[in-house]
Design a protein around this nucleic acid. Structure first.
Lengths: 355, 355
DNA sequence: TTGAAAGCGCTAACAA
DNA sequence: TTGTTAGCGCTTTCAA
């Protein structure tokens, strides 16, 4: 009774241990575990009993090696605490879970170098897809290296998904998920114009090539559509961020520029702008109307609540995994390589007619 | 010249391909790649050249299988968009990166069931550690199953790290990272008392067993220390969250309860409380002083800026991976199994003497 | 419906 | 300093 107790070796039970305990072959154990093959009910039960008894946990690495399917997807983003990103991650996590997978998430913290490195790490991991969220390409060199990564991933049957980020270039094996930046910007500028505003400042990013450049285009198109002129001195391009919004508004106010509304490139810029406005004793929306972009929770918490463009962040994340994963039963097949989600204006309390 | 071009098979180059291209053995390739063994400079270069030429990416799964070291750590939390959690995740991600590893993150979204399942998944992945962030144990059954997972992880050489979460019980193979809930609550209540407040309401969680119960204890101890009585009708236990703060404050105000200050169990509760206060025409801090707990960014954005207890969230995350990972060169050895980080009061503009 | 056995791509003795 | 050779724990033909 004390013969071959091989089970007591350090570590966890393996499939062979289970097979032995159930008096079947490892192949059979594999089959009942994966449920992809006919197995007699009686043996199935024997196996499951052994699994429970041994507290068997299948080694995902061995499984991935043998089946070349890792059941993981990689997510690379700038910073996990940025609400814009964290909502996207929530969507990704949700969809990945539905697809019975796990998400490996890593932050590049503003470094394009690190971003490339991370894609490489994900490649090592053989993730079924790697989703790169937001951001832009610092320069042509980075773009090229990224393109190489896209090809390498494609070679191994994985997919590079660009989520809210500009295309890497045509003919590259990538998939794209974006949202209507231009349309949202157009619509919210229209909203302002139809309230009677004609002198509307634009304050915000992007610094470099990013999908958000389209926000400025939408802003311009709204003016053109009404036969109005934009005043270039009211367009303050620079960065996205609270500080930038604050600084630019202070300057604008100090220079006694003539404007009745402010289109902040995103909600964080709007928060900074609001600070400067309040500080200068200007009331929103009585004296100045203010709008943002993104519709992060803080937009709602602002006093007054911010009128902004809603971006379906969570859905963006979900769409990224849908498009990136090999078609599964529960997803429609033949999904396009390029998905663009809609945006819409959310009118709250920070806009009104000009004084 | 067109003989055995075995490289063109689908997929990626393997270590054998590299070995062949460099005319060395796979062992040698492995050695130069891992740099853990002496290799002649000349061969190293040959190998690296082959690696570059073939765009070789080492299969992390195969590597994990052979070396039983996955270089991954699992993180389980309630929700990635909650700022409290996302700051912790940021710390985890940072430390994990420093340890040359990748983080697998998954959300339990309020389900204890799912939390257990996720630990199981992480176990399948053979993560070097699994960090469970925040939360509590719904009931004894969940606690017990969690304890079983802790043992299973320990058996396979991994570690369950409880981060900002109560102990599972003595003699269980878990590690704990926490912060001084009681001390912070004591200190901020003291702050209020020393300003002259004697009637201080406490509003907030926890609902169930959580490390945050200590906040109420700290509050009580501050009263006792001064020889003061707490008024139990001013202690509104329930949940953490904006809505709860709002509702309770409304009730308190409506009931014409006698209080000059509010200790919100966390910053989100404080935000809700502030809403109710403002709505009732009460000024902070002139009419009522208000304090929170956690020091999330929103505390700073509140109008007036919130006096609160700073919790070192990022450091909490970093500490969790430090304590959970087998001692590495770059980390001090012999770290304790239980780490408690300090908290401190951040005095801002929401507190003042009673009217 | 089940089993035997050949890998998957790597690491780590053990030799040389 | 390098090569040979077992495995690591699983999946998946191919047979039975």
């Amino acid at each position: 009774m004390s013969g071959q107790t091989s089970a007591k070796r350090a570590g966890t039970a393996t499939i062979s241990d289970v097979a032995r305990a159930a008096a079947v072959s490892t192949a059979t154990v594999s089959r009942v575990l994966n449920g992809n093959y006919p197995v007699a009910d009686s043996t199935r039960e024997k196996v499951m009993a052994a699994v429970r008894k041994l507290r068997y946990s299948a080694n995902a690495n061995a499984r991935a090696l043998a089946s070349s399917d890792t059941h993981t997807v990689g997510v690379i983003l700038d910073d996990v605490v940025d609400p814009t990103f964290s909502y996207i991650v929530r969507g990704v996590e949700e969809a990945v879970t539905r697809a019975d997978r796990l998400a490996i998430v890593a932050a590049s913290r503003g470094s394009p170098e690190r971003e490339i490195e991370l894609i490489e790490r994900m490649r090592d991991q053989r993730t079924d897809a790697v989703i790169v969220v937001g951001g832009a390409y610092a320069n042509e060199g980075v773009r090229r290296r990224m393109a190489a990564q896209a090809r390498a991933l494609d070679d191994m049957g994985s997919t590079l998904v660009l989520c809210g980020r500009p295309s890497l270039g045509a003919h590259l094996p990538t998939k794209l998920v974006g949202y209507d930046n231009e349309g949202g910007a157009f619509a919210i500028t229209e909203h302002l114009i139809s309230l009677g505003h004609q002198r509307i400042a634009y304050v915000g990013g992007p610094t470099r090539l990013s999908t958000t450049v389209a926000r400025v285009s939408g802003y311009r198109r709204a003016f053109e559509g009404r036969g109005l002129q934009t005043d270039e001195t009211l367009i303050r391009l620079g960065q996205f961020g609270r500080r930038f919004g604050y600084q630019q508004l202070r300057e604008l106010i100090a220079s006694e520029a003539d404007f009745t509304a402010v289109f902040a490139g995103n909600d964080m810029v709007a928060v900074g702008a609001m600070d400067a406005l309040t500080e200068a004793g200007l009331r929103v929306p009585e004296d100045i109307s203010l709008v943002g972009y993104d519709d992060i929770p803080q937009a709602y918490d602002l006093q007054p609540k911010l009128t902004t463009v809603h971006v379906p962040l969570e859905e963006l994340g979900r769409a990224a995994v849908r498009i990136g994963l090999p078609n599964e039963d529960f997803y429609e097949r033949h999904e396009a390589d390029h998905v663009t989600l809609g945006t819409h204006v959310v009118v709250r309390d920070s806009t009104g007619p000009p004084p």
